[in-house]
C-alpha cells in the first residue's frame, strides 16, 4: 500500500500546536510509519514553490494551525486547500481565532500605532512600520499585507474537520491520527472533540450556583472540590467543548474556554453570558463584569457572531 501523504502548516499561531503534535510521543512513529510528511515548515525544508508544484489533491491530509491574519496566511490556506484532499483546522487559532482573534477589537492602523510606537519597550525614532514592499540597495523586499481582521480558517476556505483547543488535547490528536491511518473518519464538518462541555469531565461538585458577586481566583481559597461557579469565580467550562479532561479545573485554574463553543453554539461568549446572567442573584453582579470580551471570548472572538469591533 502506498504511504499516505500528510502536511502540517502554521499560520498566525504561537507554535504550541506544533509542540502538541510531538507531545503524542511514540505515536508519531506510527504516523511516520504509515505516512510521509510532505510539508512541515517548522521541521522540514520544503518551500512554498514545492507545494505549488504538487498536483491538486495530492496531499491526503493537511493539518493547518493558526489563524488567518495576513495575506500570506490566506494565500497558503487557499494553496493547501487546493492541494489537500482533507483539510483539518488544527487548534484554537484555526478553529476560532484564539487569542489572536482579540486583535479584532482594533484594526491594522491602531495595532501598528500601539505595537510600533506606543508600547513602553518600543524605541522607534525613525517611525518605521511594516510595509508590503520596500526598496533596498539589494533589491525589492516584500512583506505580506497585514489585515484589519483576524479570520478563522473556515472563514477563508472550506474545512473538512476541526480539532480545537489551545493546543488540542493530546488524546484527541492521537484519535485524529489513528482515524487517518485507519481511514475511519467521521462525516465532513465533524470535530474531533466530544460534543459535551468541560463540566462533563470536571470532577468538581456543583451546588446552588447562586452568584452573588464575582471573585477572581486569588480572592478565594479553593477547596479543590466545589465548582468554581459555586465559589463565585467565573469558569468557562459550561460553555466550552470537552476533550481536555478538565485539565485546568483539576489543578485549581478555572477553564478559560480554549476548547471553543459547543457544537450547537454560534457564540461561546454570549452563551456563557446568558448562563451567568440567568444565575446571578442580583443585578449588581452584572456590573462587576469587567472586560467581558477578554473573559468570555478569549479564544473565540473571531468565530463569534459579531466577530469584531465596529470601528468608526
Amino acid at each position: 500500500m502506498e504511504k499516505l501523504k500528510i502536511a502540517f502548516y502554521w499560520a498566525a499561531s504561537c507554535g504550541g500546536c506544533e509542540i502538541a503534535v510531538l507531545d503524542v510521543n511514540e505515536k508519531i512513529l506510527d504516523v511516520v510509519a504509515k505516512a510521509d510528511i510532505v510539508f512541515w515548515p517548522v521541521a522540514i525544508d520544503i518551500k512554498y514553490k514545492d507545494v505549488e508544484a504538487m498536483p491538486d489533491k495530492s496531499i491526503d491530509a493537511c493539518f493547518f494551525n493558526g489563524a488567518i491574519r495576513t495575506e500570506e496566511n490566506e494565500r497558503i490556506a487557499k494553496l493547501l486547500r487546493e492541494k489537500s484532499k482533507i483539510l483539518v483546522a488544527f487548534g484554537s487559532c484555526a478553529c476560532d481565532g484564539c487569542v489572536k482573534g482579540l486583535a479584532n477589537l482594533w484594526n491594522k492602523e491602531t495595532i501598528f500605532q500601539r505595537a510600533y510606537f506606543e508600547t513602553p519597550s518600543t524605541k522607534n525614532p525613525e517611525l518605521v512600520t511594516p510595509q508590503t514592499s520596500v526598496s533596498v540597495k539589494e533589491g525589492e523586499l516584500e512583506l505580506p499585507e497585514f489585515y484589519d481582521t483576524v479570520k478563522t480558517l473556515a472563514q477563508t476556505v472550506d474545512v473538512d474537520y476541526f480539532i480545537s483547543g489551545c493546543p488540542p488535547p493530546i488524546s484527541c490528536i492521537i484519535q485524529v491520527f489513528e482515524g487517518f491511518i485507519s481511514g475511519n473518519l467521521p462525516p465532513k464538518g465533524s470535530s474531533f472533540l466530544p460534543n459535551k462541555s468541560i463540566c462533563d469531565e470536571c470532577p468538581r461538585e456543583k451546588k446552588e450556583h447562586s452568584i452573588t458577586e464575582i471573585k477572581r481566583i486569588y480572592e478565594i481559597e479553593d477547596d479543590f472540590k466545589t465548582c468554581f461557579w459555586d465559589q463565585q469565580v467565573i469558569c468557562m467550562g459550561p460553555a466550552t467543548r470537552a476533550g481536555c479532561g478538565a485539565q485546568c479545573p483539576k489543578v485549581n485554574i478555572p477553564c478559560t474556554g480554549c476548547g471553543g463553543p459547543g457544537p450547537r453554539v454560534a457564540d461561546q461568549g454570549a452563551a456563557m453570558i446568558s448562563a451567568m446572567a440567568s444565575i446571578a442573584t442580583d443585578p449588581s453582579v452584572i456590573e462587576q463584569v469587567v472586560d467581558p470580551i477578554g473573559t468570555f471570548y478569549k479564544y473565540s472572538l473571531a468565530n463569534s457572531i459579531l466577530r469584531r469591533k465596529v470601528i468608526k
Binding site: 454570549a270 446572567a277 443585578p283 453582579v285 467581558p292 459579531l306 469584531r308
Partner: peptide, 19 residues
Amino acid sequence: QKAQKKVELAKILLNEYGV
C-alpha cells in the same frame, strides 16, 4: 428578571463591540 440581567450584560458586551 433573568431577561433584564441578560440585557444588562449584553449592553456591557455591545459597548465592547463598539455597538
